[in-house]
Write a protein that binds this DNA or RNA. Structure first.
Lengths: 221, 221
DNA sequence: GTCTATACTGCGATAGAC
DNA sequence: GTCTATCGCAGTATAGAC
């Protein structure tokens, strides 16, 4: 695997490359690929399997995407667009209890509605971020420090207990993503066919209850 | 992939199969395999790579282990032995604050010292528990209900806040395992070469602080 | 018990007809 | 723009000499 940016398409809004058949097929392939990558990982997924799921002949994938890696990178790019956006709007002026509860709720909704995205991201990070190395650059660290600074400011202002903001963010990330990434374990522990809407709701409320009180905050409402 | 138990060796304490060369080589192969599986997943790992890391010719692996899958299953078996043991000794008589703090500490120590084990387990669960399906059987569900019942009893006795025990266990599992599974993300966010002992200590203390207080408990000492 | 040499399979990728 | 046929390679597994 090589790095990330080198493999992006020329530009997403390239005039010539937006025929309606093309657009439809690309979306079809991307969603089939996401499904397969989530279930079998990068190496475990074959172009054949993606083609079958998309209902297209194998060679078509190579027409729309240069490589297997190029296709994977494109899938990752879509995921990352969604990924960080939910955390962007936090500001020092917000009420910490409301803001943190909202963030937990958003992350849990994401785990419920986009579990493949979470799984692909998780597998990529676990196996060493080879494709993501370019994403975790100085800009990203800067962005993260900005988010952490908001939590730190809340602590400093006495709005919540003094808590290491980095580790608090990790706590929220891990506990919410768990419901997507480990859904199979949860499913088997509960003996259900799949993780239910009810599981997600009780999980969300439990996380809000424990984490907010743990930060010295009173859950809103 | 097939199920689990069918592929276990005849018996672990088979008299004939414990020559000292054999035992040494098997351990060598198992630890090399664990390293490779953690970095590249099941499909992404080649027998060749394991052989190279173990410093043995490729064909030797097939002498000691029937299959690539057989080798993988054996690695998983070793992991599972460690995995659940730390949670076995919880009893209703324990002081919840001490017991939960201990458990968090134990899980974090495990993440620090056996990160590959955590990663292999995580990837296996994320990609559908194909090898573990036999492990998550009725006995396992029974074991889990027993652990959850202890937490429930503490709530019922008023020793801690009423909290859904299942989701509390998930919270502890996910937040502690995160430091092994997502170490690469943490490393890149902090801009360090690797996750330090200090990161683990601050992480452990933050988790104990937030989770215990979140359960209405006062951290011991 | 150890290792070389090889058979066999499945995958990624491309050429080229339509 | 679509699809069939095929090449070349990497990877698992085994046969059989030592």
């Amino acid at each position: 695997m090589t790095t990330f940016d080198a493999l992006l398409p020329p530009t997403p809004t390239d005039g010539k490359r937006t025929g309606r058949i093309r657009q439809k097929n690309e979306e079809l392939i991307l969603s089939a690929a996401a499904e397969e990558f989530a279930h079998h990982g990068y190496k475990g997924t074959s172009m054949n399997a993606i083609a079958l799921r998309a209902g297209l002949p194998k060679a078509n994938l190579h027409y729309y995407f240069t490589n297997k890696l190029g296709l994977y990178v494109e899938v990752m790019r879509h995921i990352l667009e969604l990924w960080d956006s939910a955390f962007d709007h936090l500001t020092v002026e917000d009420d910490p209890a409301v803001a943190l509860a909202d963030y937990i709720r958003t992350k849990m909704a994401f785990s419920r509605k986009q579990p493949q995205a979470s799984k692909i991201f998780a597998m990529e990070v676990i196996s060493g971020c080879e494709c993501l190395s370019a994403h975790f650059d100085e800009d990203y660290r800067e962005w993260f420090r900005g988010r952490a600074a908001v939590l730190q400011a809340w602590s400093d202002a006495g709005k919540m207990d003094p808590i290491d903001p980095m580790h608090l963010i990790f706590l929220i990330w891990s506990s919410t993503q768990h419901y997507a990434d480990f859904s199979d374990q949860i499913r088997r522990i509960t003996g259900q066919r799949r993780v239910t809407k009810d599981d997600f709701e009780r999980g969300t409320e439990t996380l809000i209850q424990v984490i907010l009180k743990g930060c010295g905050l009173t859950p809103p409402r």
